[in-house]
Simulated scan of single mutants.
Amino acid sequence: MKIGILGLGLIGGSLGFDLRSQGHEVLGVSRRESTCQKAIALGSVDRAEVDLSLFATADIVFICTPIALIVPQIQQLIEHLSAATIITDVGSVKAPIVNAIAPLWENFVGGHPMAGTADSGIEAAQRHLFVDRPYVLTPINTTPPQATAVVEEIVRSLGSKIYHCQPEQHDRAVSWISHLPVMVSASLIAACMGETDPAVLQLAQNLASSGFRDTSRVGGGNPELGVMMAQFNQQALLSSLQQYRYQLDQVIDLIEQENWTALEAKLQSTQKARPEFVE
């Protein structure tokens, strides 16, 4: 199969490694010629150019650009494709993308691999990134079953766990387990930096260990990605943030009231619930 990858960063580059290893011909397009050359040198793609016309004969194209660029890039891309070409994306928000692209391109299947690292760029690409990771597909009523089946086959070959849902369901779910944690984590870092005693702040920085590292990791990630999460999943994220604020206010009240019994019960409840989210 001839597979195109638009956007040769962490996700696009990693897809290229795995798809080439299975014998597919992988074509890559990036905005920078230097990135194209690096992708070829690393072995992530067979060919790479800055021109979208490279995808004219592709059977399927994966859109691996930042969220804000997905729709405008597809609008340009479809001028170069045959009607039979399948397009799928890897954006972490689905409803705005699916709603914008479905009327323009029948063979479009929304997708979101729940995989990644703190690093970015083609240099961060790695083999087997998607093994045992969730990969969400969001076909709608007008999506041709054959197009979905082709994307499924490729995703399954990556070793991913496939999930199907409506775009809006996806966005509400990821607002809880992906987008909300970014905002909470960033707020944790900002709160710590609000310490007014320089000696105490320095001591806190020196003492920070695994607990702070785990809870602050996503808040110290790519700011551009965080803004796009908020911009394109605004309503779902606001809803989850408001619920989080409610839960935080409850904890504050229990501590102010010195209601240690109720606080322990709350922590026992969260201790019991956590394994349902993280194995």
Rank of each mutant, 00 (worst) to 15 (best):
G159D: 09
G116R: 04
E276T: 15
A83K: 07
T142W: 08
T35E: 08
L188K: 02
V90T: 14
S21K: 13
V150C: 10
V50W: 11
A149L: 13
A39F: 00
Y135C: 00
Q271A: 14
A204T: 00
P103I: 06
E123T: 13
A48W: 03
N141K: 15
G91W: 04
G9S: 09
L254D: 04
K272W: 12
A68I: 10
S240P: 09
H179T: 13
S160M: 07
R20S: 07
S240Q: 15
P66C: 05
T261V: 09
L254W: 04
A186W: 05
L10I: 11
T270S: 15
Q126M: 10
G13V: 01
L10Q: 03
L203E: 05
Q235D: 15
E25D: 11
A236E: 15
D46L: 00
L267K: 01
I67T: 03
S209K: 01
N233M: 12
F130Q: 03
C36D: 05
Y244M: 14
F108W: 01
F55S: 02
W176Y: 12
A100K: 04
T143E: 02
I63A: 00
I40E: 09
Q169L: 14
W105L: 01
E276G: 15
L69G: 10
S44F: 04
G9A: 04
V218P: 00
P198M: 02
I74T: 10
P167H: 02
L6F: 11
Q205G: 01
V227A: 15
A265F: 09
V71C: 10
V174S: 11
H164L: 14
D59K: 06
D119P: 09
R156G: 10
S160G: 14
I154C: 08
V131W: 14
D171F: 05
D59W: 06
F130C: 05
P72R: 08
V98E: 01
A147K: 06
I5V: 13
I87G: 02
S210V: 09
R217V: 00
I87H: 03
A102G: 00
G220C: 11
T57S: 04
S240Y: 07
V151I: 11
L8V: 04
L241G: 01
P181N: 08
E224Y: 10
A262L: 11
R47G: 01
P113N: 07
N206E: 10
I67N: 09
L238H: 15
I60N: 04
V61N: 05
V61S: 09
C64S: 12
M228H: 14
A199C: 06
